[in-house]
């Protein structure tokens, strides 16, 4: 092998850089996300009314698509009433519907988004509610 020394040093540097994130985070346990649903607004509701616009499982998996559709529908089509699978109607609004109940952005939104390292740009424009926890 020509230039064996240089190649080996190069390989070592590459290996170091490529695996740096793993070593850097080794042994650091990241707490499992634990989004909270116990805002005063939600607790005020009667037990049977404590429901989101769609079932929890659906919201957990599809809330981003739902919000995207709401956004396009409201902004582009001027269609802003959502009738859910139970026939209940909602004003499609992140600020004025979703966050009215979920007035704990930090514990509700950021908890998972930080864990998943996703940074939705919602809050660059939309105003987060004043943090309220139970």
């Amino acid at each position: 092998m020509y230039n064996a020394g240089k190649i080996l040093i190069g390989l070592a540097i590459f290996f170091g850089l490529a695996t740096f994130p793993f070593f850097y985070n080794m042994g650091k346990a990241v707490a499992k996300p634990d989004p909270k649903l116990d805002t005063p607004e939600i607790m005020k509701l009667a037990k049977q009314d404590r429901k989101c616009v769609e079932p929890k499982e659906f919201m957990r998996a599809e809330h981003m698509q739902l919000l995207n559709n709401w956004r396009d529908s409201v902004v582009r089509d001027n269609v802003r009433v959502y009738v859910n699978s139970e026939g209940k109607k909602f004003d499609m609004s992140l600020q004025n519907t979703c966050m009215r109940c979920h007035s704990n952005k930090k514990k509700f939104c950021d908890e998972c988004h930080n864990y998943m390292a996703v940074k939705p740009y919602c809050w660059d424009c939309h105003i987060a509610p004043k943090e309220k926890e139970s």
Partner: peptide, 14 residues
């Protein structure tokens, strides 16, 4: 489809 049956509609007061 069920969820879509949930549909969206314009605000009637609009």
């Amino acid at each position: 489809g069920d969820l879509e049956a949930s549909q969206m509609e314009p605000n009637p007061e609009g």
